[in-house]
Computed example of a mutant assay.
Amino acid sequence: MRPISKTILGLAAAALFCGAISEPTFAQEEKTAKQLFGSVKLPNRGDAEPLGFYAKGCQSGAVALPTDGPTWQAMRLSRNRRWGNPAMISLLEQFSRDAAGLGWGTGILVGDISMPRGGPMPSGHASHQIGLDADIWFTPKPQRPLSPAQREDIPFTSMLDKSKFLTVDSRRWSPTHARLVMQAASYPQVQRVFVNPAIKKKLCETWTGDRSLLGKVRPVYGHDEHFHIRMNCPPGAAGCERQASTPSTDDCNSKALAWWFTKEPWAPPKPADPNKKPVKPRQVMLSNLPKACAAVLSAPSRSEQDATFQGGGQGGGGMAYSPSVPLPAAASSLDTMTDGDMPGPGSDVPLPSPRPSR
């Protein structure tokens, strides 16, 4: 049995004191978990810790990525999804500097990380629940910073050729795009990098650096306009549920990758049986998440200034943090660089509904 961390014990004690952990209040149980977590605007006071699995959990002690930094900008600010585990925020700052060094504009545009206390989002993601996932746009940070209005309205740029089935558009994709994705995969803290299957195939065909790192690059629906970085559970995070390891090979000749280029993933859903009673979708409730999440939800809020990460960038408030695992220096050579589970052959993971048309 893994040792229980002080954070979880503290959360449990606090929740028992206010009657919130093992028996969520009636008012809480009336609302779905995404309604409860989506209504919270600030993180709880407490030690930083991911609780549960990437697609079924919450986070304690989150910090915010500053909206602006020398080599990054946070996008879609109205969503309030720039909160993460301090290790994730620190990694994003490091990655932004490395991206700028690769010639990726003046840095990165960061999409969704997580909500202030994690948990299921009202829309858009099944994962991103424990502060260890982050989306990076396939659009570099421009020389002139984007205004708040531009961050809300600027469109995504797909890397796919819409006239061809699962094919990267050579007019948009460049070696710098490839170097950017593989830089993300190079960090030891990064467990997976999710991309569109066409992008994985393109990397398999063209990447000449460390091929073993391609095993971290996982194909999945969508992800043609951005890619998704997922971190390993931080050391000592006893409440974080770890995911299976990625292949140690490039995984380019696997049945799992080939499956994406068959008709099966893209076939329309079978028509519903008119004689069968429709099944009402099952909502995720607070009681379905790890017990400590009730305490996270009920805990007092930290102020936004105190909860803004103070790292190498600007615009932050007063929380300083030293990651327990030192981040690597920018790789001197890209050749040295190093999915909840995602659908694939033999997988019991449900397919998205509705399924994408392309």
Rank of each mutant, 00 (worst) to 15 (best):
S212V: 10
L9Y: 09
H228W: 05
Q73P: 04
A64Q: 01
S170F: 09
S174I: 14
G318H: 13
P352L: 08
Q143T: 15
G215C: 05
I229W: 00
P345S: 03
V181M: 11
K31I: 11
P274R: 07
E93F: 04
P148S: 12
R144A: 14
I199D: 02
P345K: 08
P265I: 02
L166E: 09
R117V: 03
T246D: 04
S332Y: 11
T7Q: 04
R282G: 08
T167S: 15
R45S: 14
Q143E: 15
V40Q: 04
S322G: 12
A134I: 02
L42F: 08
R179P: 07
Q183E: 15
T336A: 12
L77G: 08
K162P: 05
G312P: 01
V220T: 12
I89W: 02
G222W: 07
F165T: 14
D251I: 08
P24G: 05
D306M: 05
G52S: 02
P70E: 12
P145R: 10
A20E: 04
P24M: 09
A258D: 12
H226F: 11
M342N: 12
S158K: 05
C252K: 09
G111K: 00
S163G: 13
T246K: 03
P345G: 02
P155C: 11
K162Q: 13
M342Y: 09
D273S: 03
H223A: 09
A295W: 02
G111Y: 00
P271A: 03
R172N: 07
R81D: 13
S186H: 12
D335V: 10
G57A: 02
F165P: 10
D135M: 03
P281F: 08
A329N: 08
Q129D: 03
G215M: 05
M1T: 11
H177D: 11
W104S: 01
F309A: 04
G344C: 08
H223T: 10
Q243Y: 06
D133W: 07
S186F: 07
P148N: 10
D224E: 07
Q143A: 15
A329K: 11
R144T: 15
V193F: 07
D224M: 05
D348A: 14
T176C: 07
V40I: 14
K164N: 08
S301I: 08
